[in-house]
Write a protein that binds this DNA or RNA. Structure first.
Ligand SMILES: [Mn+2]
Ligand SMILES: [Mn+2]
Ligand SMILES: [Mn+2]
Ligand SMILES: [Mn+2]
Lengths: 220, 220
DNA sequence: AGTTATTTTTAGATTGGGCTAAATTTATTG
DNA sequence: CAATAAATTTAGCCCAATCTAAAAATAACT
């Protein structure tokens, strides 16, 4: 079944919305996510339903069908593999890779993505720590938790970030925090739920509650 | 100035047609090259003229303007750099790279193409031996001639091919002829202008006039 | 030069993807 | 539970890129 770039983007949006809300995706949510008018979404939903990609019933939300889900997963696979390529091979910074990968992900060639995967040594996670589905669409799971759930005294390593905003990633760059960075939690401040952490043995850093919730870590 | 993929393809077509015919490009020629109806071409020519990309006058052919030429050259640069990436890094065969590069060439990022160029060590020629313009749009020239112009006794090396058809390239693969292959011309057959060449010291091969004209070589 | 053939353009239609404004359905709330 | 609010769909429009059929301009030939 041939899908246009736009159709693929809708499937990915539905996938990500349903993943996070753990339910069906509503017209308005999709509109907000894609950045179009709700009326345009309704049009597209009808077309995607016609292609058996989604289950659509007027005024109810939509869910992906099996093949729709597979398409979405493969798109995410391509996106994240290209992000790895851009970061690891072309030395792009982690805040720069997403926008370019948004275009690269639509290149249509099964052979290309599989060769790229092999060339990159079958990476399991992208430059933001998000899991890369394999050719069969299977994601790698791993133990990780929000930094908010860690306790003073814990030593942790950064595995991922829930927020991909350029400005946020640049903020982390300034703090010398990136994937793989290890740090110790020195204090938890109950009044505002912020944390004091020690990164480089020299400078102590304050992270707000919001930032702590975004950072995904593992105890070491 | 923003150009759609389609508009870029038209500019490239005009560039290549004018390059080979060494003149302006006609509506019908463009239509044949792109694979659309002449009426569609006329529409597009008007739009490209509106964007100052081509010089268009009803019923005369078209030529690229300075900025139109620059866009075409940059597109060719991206195309050929991606072909190098696909062949040299992902180990695609030279007959497989073109179709994928047709899509990759439209990825919009100056930074991306320049980093890719650096990553590939600033290649000067693509997997078919075609020159790759540098960031300033300058092509590398080199001494090469059609194999038809070589003489019996000459030892030559293959530098490029004028024809990129999959079936033709696969034919060369079967003959064990690729870029960099060296061979000696054993005989020129006047009646049909075919040539006998010796590739591997063991087997002698017959090349038709058509093939000889396509192969670009240098005496060694 | 006049007639025919070819090339190119115009006219009018279609499809994908978008928009706004109005209508309709579902949800919330006094 | 009726009335208002919010979400969703329908109606009608637009633009890019294509098409076919017909008209107009240019080229080729007796
Ligand atoms: Mn991304
Ligand atoms: Mn990512
Ligand atoms: Mn090519
Ligand atoms: Mn090439």
């Amino acid at each position: 079944m041939h899908l246009s770039n736009t159709e693929e983007n809708y499937l990915k949006a539905i996938y990500k919305i349903a993943e996070r809300k753990n339910k069906s995706a509503s017209t308005n949510t999709i509109a907000k996510y894609i950045g179009t008018a709700p009326a345009s979404v309704t049009d597209m939903l009808k077309r995607l339903a016609g292609k058996q990609m989604i289950n659509y019933e007027r005024y109810k939300g939509v869910t992906l069908t099996t093949i729709g889900g597979r398409e979405a997963t493969q798109l995410i696979r391509r996106h994240r593999l290209w992000e790895v390529f851009l970061a690891s091979r072309l030395r792009f910074s982690w805040e720069a890779v997403h926008d370019i990968a948004e275009e690269l992900e639509h290149i249509k060639s099964e052979e290309l993505v599989n060769r790229l995967d092999a060339y990159l040594d079958y990476p399991k996670f992208d430059p933001h720590g998000d899991p890369i589905p394999n050719a069969q669409g299977k994601f790698t799971l791993r133990n990780q938790m929000s930094l908010s759930a860690a306790l003073p005294g814990n030593k942790v390593v950064l595995l991922g970030v829930r927020e991909h905003e350029t400005s946020f990633l640049e903020y982390l760059n300034e703090l010398n925090i990136g994937l793989g960075t290890e740090f110790t939690i020195k204090a938890f401040n109950n009044f505002d739920k912020s944390m004091n952490i020690l990164v480089d043995h020299n400078k102590e850093t304050l992270l707000s509650e919001k930032v702590c919730q975004i950072l995904l870590v593992k105890k070491i």
